[in-house]
Design a protein around this nucleic acid. Structure first.
Lengths: 205, 205, 205, 205
DNA sequence: CATGAATGAGTCTTCATTCAT
DNA sequence: CATGAATGAAGACTCATTCAT
């Protein structure tokens, strides 16, 4: 790794920490730079401005999430039937999501709290993020309906928002409000409860 | 005395509008007073500073919500049994909530979006708000369990967070993202769908 | 006393207290008004502005001092000789001064501390005050020289400044720094010491 | 590093000039930076705020004075007797003081006029300053008493205040009120007169 | 690449003063 | 005479950004 790349990465890591602790507006570029141990001017070698730092993080988060949660969708892309199979599918989704949100709490805090209320110039990125997640959920539900595990008369828009709301809120509650550090075993029992709640919500059978 | 109260109220209304549009940090005190048609100094007769304006709004919202949603709980406090009754109870909750969030979209935007990411000095107020709502939901679930309409083995913490997450997210989706203006008739069909989803989530029967 | 006169006097008394405690710039008109128990606008019925309040006090202090210290000068205007007489004269001066500065410590604080550093627009008044005092001292010294109790070769300018400096400083030390409340008996022993110091300074014999 | 120190020093010099001319409250930070030929923000790189600028000056003055007046005390620490020696000692003190107050009239104005009436948050610094001076004078008097040149029955508290008052007042009169610029020869004749007055006050013989 | 001194537009906030009631 | 709501000019201070070294 080039020296420049290393500095850039370090600054991004510091930015994540500070943004997470103080929010976008309350963090000062000098906070980030100080934590990174470099001079004021250095950060402007890698980022156009403060906004650029924050949106770089947000864009990165979308890719992180895709890598963590969305990509393995193919494993379950086959049309093999069976309700256990569908539940298994849901379980994996929730598990990946829980791992994603628990492994980096600064990132979680930014995605679920900081990113929400911030300036509308970041809204497109956040919308894109949410849109991706929402589309995955909708796709999953439609898949479940095709396979007969989810009733046809469910309102897709309402249901997927209910699911995303529930999932985000639970992860927010666990990892942002309570800052819980959780073992893999703990996470699995939580996931199991989540599977039960969500399969109920969607009347999976 | 009368005049002062009127000015204060007007400024609070303007503040709500501007905070909702621009967020806490991007709104300038001068935006608010300009919209209110008064001089800069006037707003400082009624509020200590910008923070005070915002937190006054938040505190007001807690009271608004209690008046709108929480107070009529007693009507259903009787121990009349019957699952229809329990569903009816849930329906009323969701209906009141939907009315509350649809009747003042600036307020909704501030509660569900602006208030979330803002500086941690407002966190206690937001926590208090969320705490009140969470407690109502938990109380409702426990009541349902006592009356046998909700299974005992449900995880109260997870379930109530799932419910609050789903409800907030749906209202957020409808009134903040889509800025939907909704007739009473529309709202009722949405509420009906919400009742179905939430009663499923909680396995009410 | 008319009601108006009474209000004016009360406000002046309050102003004296606040100016003494906070200095000219740190006192707010609203402090004075609040202490006086009247409305903001009322004080502007009696004084043109904040400066007018302060300079009214200063002007008053000049008259106060003249009444307290300077006027009885005539009692000693005769040209009766005798060193005891001259010392007696000095004693009376110092005594009157000490009474003047001890009887109203807010006034003392304003004259000896607040009034010094304040805006140069009050300088003429303060100069006038100091000038009157200086002239009295010079006159006294010249009188002492005429009568042969003070050497001719003394530098009038230096000596009178030394005397006024010493007197002011001692009173400042006693009544401003140490806020000493002092009985008539105490004061007399202090005055006696002062007489000794000043008669030495002026080589009175 | 070099450049920064230079800017800081320049701003401090400008601040001294402006504070001296306008007093603490009437000087605006923008006056100082304008005179310094730098931008508004620059001064805040070196000083926390306006108060910090002023108190930095005051603290500096204490050190200046110690360097100018107090340090050479040891030269006279020997116990060589003789009244000429004691008078010589007094002469040097007054001379050093006169040089100190005449060499930088802005500083003199701030010490003897501006610093007095200002807000009580600077009082500790001014007290510290006065305390140091007072202690030196007291020490000198006690030394004189030990060596038999000053009577034992003198009131130390009163006498030292008389001396400090006289000295300050004379310097104030010369360098603040009359803004006299004085040659070394002039100063020596003034000092001679001062020696005479003070040695009389303290009955040195 | 890195530095950190300098910039200055931008904001909040204060407070003496006015004036309609 | 008294009130107190409203005014708005004025000033301190912040902080993202630039650029010469």
């Amino acid at each position: 790794m080039k020296k420049g790349e290393k500095t850039r990465g370090k600054l991004l890591k510091c930015a994540e920490k500070v943004f997470s602790q103080k929010g976008y507006y309350e963090t000062q570029v000098s906070d980030i730079v100080k934590m990174g141990g470099v001079a004021k001017g250095t950060i402007y070698q890698y980022f156009k401005n403060k906004r650029d730092i924050f949106s770089t993080l947000l864009e990165q988060y979308i890719r992180d999430w895709e890598n963590a949660v969305a990509l393995d969708m193919k494993d379950y892309m086959g049309d093999r039937p069976g309700i256990e199979y569908a539940i298994d599918f849901l379980r994996h989704r929730l598990q990946k999501t829980a791992f994603f949100f628990s492994e980096n709490q600064d990132r979680t805090n930014i995605i679920l709290r900081i990113g929400i209320g911030v300036n509308e110039e970041f809204e497109p990125i956040m919308r894109k993020f949410e849109g991706k997640i929402l589309r995955v959920i909708m796709h999953d539900i439609v898949l479940g309906q095709k396979q007969g595990h989810i009733p046809q008369n469910i309102n897709l828009e309402m249901a997927s928002n209910a699911v995303i709301g529930a999932i985000f809120r639970i992860n927010y509650y666990l990892f942002v409000i309570n800052k819980r550090t959780i073992s893999k075993i703990d996470i699995n029992s939580l996931v199991e409860e989540g599977v039960r709640l969500m399969s109920n919500t969607l009347q999976m059978k």
